[in-house]
Design a binder for these strands. Structure first.
Lengths: 305, 305
DNA sequence: ATAATTGATTACTTTTTCTCATGGATTGCA
DNA sequence: TGCAATCCATGAGAAAAAGTAATCAATTAT
């Protein structure tokens, strides 16, 4: 039988590079590991490592086991963590995953009052998912998914918690800054600055430019909002961001929001959770808190649509 | 520590409804389960079941553990299944290394029927090796080497799987197109197009031009076969390729093969494997499949020598 | 009532796991 | 090149863990 210790050994030998070093980390003798490994290989009927000289190298089967270890061991570790919390009557860790950049800005505003109300709850924010946020939610990598794209699946529950308008940001001296709204054609000669994500996931493309068959003169990728907006302010290009975010930055940077199309692009942020988790009080409390327009000390922010 | 058996117990007690019944399914005595459960609850510091009369009811922590069990146990079971497949040689990744361009063309023909026969085997093709293909084979970077240059070493086994003739390719209107074979001197005024590899590894040089002390007017390097042959077709140069490959392309492109020298240059493709791997059946199956002239839907291809 | 079933407990046995000591092999360094 | 250090494998025995049998007390079904 494949036991936890076997996975731990595979992972640790890989991390440490040798059986001896792994043994120390695992608080076992080198001999114990050697015996255990031998026995496991015998039971499975296949080698996990190739013995090359005095070092070990994973076989294909070993590589696979390493993958299993890296997936399963964290689940067990988290389960134990959770059990400890149950035992102490404590609250747990709320692991929040995010799939969009504006989500992050929004989250920052929701998290701080939440942390004040739930001092015993830790919040972890993750942003990278190998197989997407939904998979991470199903795989118990995260407990809460913040996303603009809800995907209704059995076992999951999504709820819209925030409406906002996606607008074009231009420098204050930009010709478009004075127009009441912008048409797709008007972007044909612009440099469009965006976050590094697939183009078909950017609203300004799939809801605005693409339907009109227009492409900007150039597409430029920038990681951070601050730099992005400084580029916009200096007239190096335009970008698309949530209106509330733009208005907040507009105090510090020379930028102006402009509506995208006559009707504007309206967006929502959704929270996704596993149905089974809905009775975890600190989790449902987060959703409840997120549902209300966030209380803020920023007057500007209240102008959002 | 939370072990596999603990999760199995939680799941089985839930399924069977009682400790005693679960014990039977798990091939353990009721006493053993009772002990194990007691110990686990003590270690975790929290009850997993509420004892109500003579029956058990999951606590909140227990419910959570049950969820973990239902998620994690199947992963382990699947991993074991996979390991069994690895052990039986039914599954694996066949990492194929290649050292020549014609090898690649040939490989394409062998791989597709193989993949159909071995749906659980992945094929990886690598073409760059820091210390050469043989070293990659020894170093377990690859499992199979496709090469025109066998190198017999202890621990390795090479086998010729394919004979072909290396010919000159010229455009159909080229003066040489009508000759029955070409002499080295006749290439002295030609532009010779070749893949980007060291000149001394090109057969047309080391078996044909160099022995005669002749060099072409110019040596031109091109990456891809398609472009290379279009250049040849348009009269911009000549190239050296396997006859079967030329004949296949001759349907689409205006090119003709011409024998190199009166006797022609005959070549072989070899497969190299580690002797220790010969009993891996999906690997030996590949060699077996490669050994036979590839079955093809291309009639042209059967004309190869 | 009473017979049957369930989980808990104790004492004991068996199995598994771990360590120690040691050896052979490889590698790095003087 | 030769020596020291390091690595993994192995056998024997100690320590720990997990298992069983027998029995008890409590609950449930008839």
């Amino acid at each position: 039988m494949l036991e936890r210790i076997h996975l731990a050994i595979v992972r640790e030998v890989d991390r440490q590079g040798s059986l001896t070093a792994a043994a120390n980390v695992l608080c076992l003798s080198q001999s114990a590991l050697s015996h255990t490994v031998k026995k496991l290989e015998h039971q499975l009927g296949i080698d996990i490592w190739l013995r090359e000289g005095r070092s070990l190298k994973l076989t294909q089967a070993g590589e696979y086991l390493l993958g299993v270890a890296n997936r399963v061991l964290p689940q067990l570790a988290y389960a134990e963590e959770r059990m400890r919390e149950y035992a102490k009557g404590e609250r747990g860790t709320l692991r929040i995953g995010m799939e969009c950049h504006p989500c992050y800005q929004w989250l920052l505003k929701v998290v701080s009052p939440y942390l004040a109300n739930w001092p015993d709850v830790d919040v972890d924010v993750k942003q990278k998912f190998q197989f997407g946020g939904i998979a991470a939610l199903f795989g118990y990598e995260i407990d809460l998914l913040v996303t603009p794209d809800p995907l209704y699946r059995p076992g999951l529950r999504f709820e819209a918690v925030f409406d906002y308008e996606q607008v074009l940001v231009v420098g204050r001296k930009h010709p478009l800054a004075v127009t009441s709204y912008v048409k797709p054609e008007q972007l044909a000669d612009e440099i469009l600055i965006a976050y590094p994500v697939a183009i078909d996931r950017l609203d300004i493309y799939n809801q605005f430019l693409m339907p009109a068959g227009i492409m900007p003169k150039r597409h430029k990728v920038i990681e951070t909002t601050d730099i992005m907006l400084q580029m916009v302010a200096s007239g190096r290009g335009v970008a698309a961001l949530p209106r509330w975010l733009v208005e907040e930055y507009a105090r510090k940077v020379e930028i102006t929001p402009v509506r995208l199309g006559a009707k504007g692009i309206s967006k929502q942020i959704f929270l996704g959770v596993r149905e089974a988790d809905l009775d975890i009080d600190y989790l449902s409390a987060f959703i409840g808190q997120a549902r209300q327009p966030f209380s803020t000390t920023d007057k500007d922010t209240e102008q959002r649509s």
